[in-house]
Design a protein around this nucleic acid. Structure first.
Length: 125
RNA sequence: GCGGAUGGCCGGGUGGCCGCGCGUCUCCCUUCGGGGGGGAUGCGAGGAAAGUCCGGACUCCAGAAAGCGACGGUGCCGGGUAACGCCCGGGCGGGGCAACCCGACGGAAAGCGCCACAGAGAACAGACCGCCGCCCCCGCGGGGGCGGCAAGGGUGAAACGGUGGAGUAAGAGCCCACCGGGGGGCCGGCAACGGUCCCCGCAUGGCAAGCCCCACCGGGAGCAAUGCCGCAUAGGGGGUCCGCGACGGGCGGCGCUUUCGCCCAGGGCCCCGGGUAGGCAGCUCGAGCCUGUCGGCGACGGCAGGCCCAGAUGAAUGGUCACCCCCCGGGGUUCGCGCCCCGGGGACAGGAUCCGGCUUACAGGUCGUCCGCGCAC
């Protein structure tokens, strides 16, 4: 992050398009594959195919809180994914980011990005 | 100034950087029906979007009207409204010095039921203590018997009108005045109701949020409604009953009846499956919002002008940083107000077919109006 607060953007190879998961079955399949838990979020992922689009989905259940709390957690997860996944994710994989009560919404944003990086490292191992 | 009552309004702001959804215009690519991408521009959550408690619009159950009976709801009167259980105005009752607030506020001589405990007696009342008269007994304090009474005490949520007087042996609406109550007339008011006059000595306590009675209202299900397309499949299969062309049968998902109307060559019942909530329409211009004006005490309505104001669907309106504003804590400085620095916090809460209400949640700010007290005049 730069001094003026603007967010560094990955643009070396141009924008990498992220597809969005919308089918319930995709979420269930990702949940049965690999899981990494951090303080601010939980990451689930599966290798769908060798090549192809990076797909990402977000889950914030009623456990996260009321509608406002769920929306806020989901928006922060979406922002984290937008900033870092194009650079760190692997082609052909599906990722699901899961929000946690209080922690996803309250955690410092830089720490949340670090959580995602750490989770990705463990998932890809 | 202090305390209180009440009605509105707002509910973070500005600026960087990076993003999102939808509409319109435009350009590019294309396996040109359509799909994908870029750019510009416009719009993009709430006062409660919430709870889903009422009332509607809309859609389907072919439809329409009426009656009876269930069932549910509403319940002082008048008005507003598309409608309401909402709102406004008024009445009555209760609370408060007051502003003002609160009220399931129809009917108890239609009927049934209930009134615990306490108490002598609790609904065609009743006599425990007590009061009074007469008689008897005794070591005159008192005790007993017969009768009269219901004022006082006591019980209770409630004791068969209340207060005062007259009256009496003591008493009692027995009588009188006032209050309360009942009946009738007149007056004011659309009405709820109020006022007043006459009569009645008082004759029927409470609970209707126990059943009930009366008046009025209500058909059911819901946008995952409903329609179209696509995919899948078997545009299903089996059993049984009635019927196969008529004065027969069926037709809103409470039942019955009547009238009109509609449908039928099949229909009713039971058993055995699969698939799925994919796309489009519904889907946002509406009992709409703003301004002015007129009518009305007001809720609200009329008229004129202007405006277009979310339409997502794993569900957009965000992420982050800085400054400002407010609050809290610590430190410095100052007699103190204040100022500066650091840290923390800024509510309740997110549309999902759309409106009108109600209810509940809510940091803080702001604008009125009114009342009481104190001070000044």
């Amino acid at each position: 992050m730069t001094d003026d607060g603007s967010v560094a953007c990955q643009d070396a190879d141009g924008p990498i398009h992220l597809e969005r998961l919308t089918r319930r079955g995709d979420f269930l399949r990702a949940a049965r594959a690999r899981v990494a838990k951090t303080r601010g979020l939980v990451l689930q992922a599966r290798e769908r195919e060798a090549e192809g689009a990076i797909r990402v989905g977000f889950t914030c259940s009623k456990k996260v809180g009321n509608a406002v709390a769920r929306n806020r957690a989901k928006r922060r997860l979406r922002e984290v994914a937008r900033l870092d996944l194009p650079r760190s994710a692997r082609p052909g994989w599906d990722y699901v980011l899961i929000g946690l009560r209080e922690r996803t919404a309250m955690r410092d944003f830089a720490d949340l990005r670090a959580d995602l990086a750490s989770a990705l490292g463990r998932i890809h191992r």
